[in-house]
C-alpha cells in the first residue's frame, strides 16, 4: 500500500500528465510543462519565503496565502503561455517539441544565474500549509478532479471537438472554419496554468525548489506518462502519471535492478499497448455502468 506522500507524488504525476495531454489533444507536442511547473513553484517559493508579511510566525502557512499563490501562478503562467505561444505554436510536430525544450533550458539557466532565485541551491525551508501529506492529498485530488471535470466537459464541448479536429487534420479543420491557432493557444494556455498550479503545491510539498525541476529529463518523463497511459482520453495521462510515478518506489524491493525494470516497463508499455493503456476500446470492454461509459467516451 503506497503511503500518503507517495500518493501525493502520484497525483502530481497525474496532473503533469494532464498538462502534457491538453496540447496533445489539439495535436501539439509541447514539452513546456516542466518549465511552467518551475515557474509556478518559484511563485510559491518566493512569496512564501521572501514576503515576511505572509505566514510569519504561524506554525502552518495560512491557506488564503496559498490560494493567492495559486491565483498568481495561474495568471503569470497564462501570460507567459500567451507571449510564448504566439510565436511557438506556429511550429509543428517535433519542431514545436524542440522549441519548448529550448525554452525550458533557457529558463533553467536564467534561474540558475539569478541571485533572487537562490541560484543552484534554490529556495529552501518553504513553509507548510498542511501538517501532513493528507492535506496535500486533498488539495491535489481536488485540483485533479477539477481538471478532470474540465477535460470531461471539454470532450462534449465545441472547443473540445475543435481540438480533436485540429489534431486529426489541422488543414481540414481550418478549412471548415475552425480558428486553429486560437484553439492551439487555448490548449497551450490551459496546459501552462495546470502545470503552474501543480508547481505551487509541489514546491510546498517538497519543501525546496530549484531550477532543476524543469530539466529535459522531466520533459521526457511527463511525455512518457501520456504515451504510456494513452493520449485519446484524459483518463490515460492520469493513469500514466499515477503508475509511472509510483513504479520506481514500488520497485524498491528489486534493489539494484530497480531502474532496469523501470526502463523495461517504459519500453514494453507502448509495445503491448500502442494506443496507451486507457483506450476507448478498453472502456467498452470494462464492466462500467453504462452512464459512466457514455460520459467518458468522446
Amino acid at each position: 500500500m503506497p503511503d500518503g506522500s507517495l500518493l501525493v507524488q502520484m497525483l502530481i504525476g497525474a496532473l503533469l500528465g494532464l498538462s502534457v495531454y491538453l496540447p496533445l489533444a489539439a495535436g501539439q507536442l509541447s514539452l513546456a510543462t516542466p518549465g511552467f511547473m518551475t515557474v509556478g513553484g518559484y511563485v510559491a517559493a518566493l512569496l512564501s519565503t521572501r514576503v515576511a508579511a505572509l505566514g510569519g510566525a504561524e506554525p502552518l502557512y495560512p491557506l488564503p496565502w496559498l490560494l493567492l499563490e495559486l491565483v498568481l501562478a495561474a495568471v503569470i503562467a497564462l501570460a507567459l503561455a500567451l507571449v510564448v505561444g504566439l510565436p511557438v505554436l506556429r511550429l509543428r510536430g517535433i519542431y514545436l517539441a524542440i522549441a519548448t525544450i529550448a525554452l525550458n533550458e533557457i529558463l533553467r539557466v536564467l534561474l540558475l544565474n539569478s541571485s533572487w532565485t537562490g541560484g543552484a541551491v534554490g529556495i529552501f525551508a518553504i513553509p507548510q500549509p498542511f501538517g501532513d501529506p493528507l492535506g496535500y492529498l486533498a488539495a491535489l485530488l481536488l485540483l485533479l478532479l477539477l481538471a478532470g471535470a474540465a477535460c470531461q466537459v471539454l470532450a462534449g464541448h465545441p472547443l473540445g471537438r475543435a481540438m480533436a479536429a485540429v489534431r486529426d487534420d489541422e488543414l481540414a479543420a481550418s478549412c471548415s472554419g475552425v480558428d486553429s491557432f486560437r484553439v492551439k493557444l487555448l490548449a497551450f494556455g490551459a496546459s501552462a496554468v495546470l502545470a503552474a498550479l501543480t508547481g505551487v503545491l509541489a514546491a510546498h510539498f517538497f519543501n525546496t525548489w530549484n531550477a532543476r525541476q524543469g530539466s529535459f529529463d522531466a520533459s521526457i518523463t511527463t511525455l512518457a506518462f501520456v504515451v504510456f497511459g494513452g493520449s485519446r482520453l484524459w483518463l490515460g495521462p492520469v493513469l500514466g502519471g499515477l503508475v509511472l510515478t509510483a513504479l520506481p518506489e514500488l520497485l524498491r524491493p528489486v534493489g539494484d535492478l530497480r531502474l532496469v525494470v523501470f526502463g523495461a516497463v517504459i519500453l514494453l508499455g507502448p509495445l503491448l499497448f500502442p494506443q496507451g493503456v486507457v483506450t476507448p476500446a478498453l472502456l467498452q470492454r470494462l464492466p462500467l455502468p453504462a452512464g459512466w461509459r457514455r460520459r467518458l467516451l468522446p
Binding site: S5, A120, V121, G122, F124, A125, F206, N207, T208, N210, R212
Partner: peptide
C-alpha cells in the same frame, strides 16, 4: 545538499 533541503524536513 540539494536533496537534504527537501528530504531532511520530512
Amino acid at each position: 545538499s540539494q536533496q537534504a533541503f527537501a528530504a531532511d524536513p520530512v
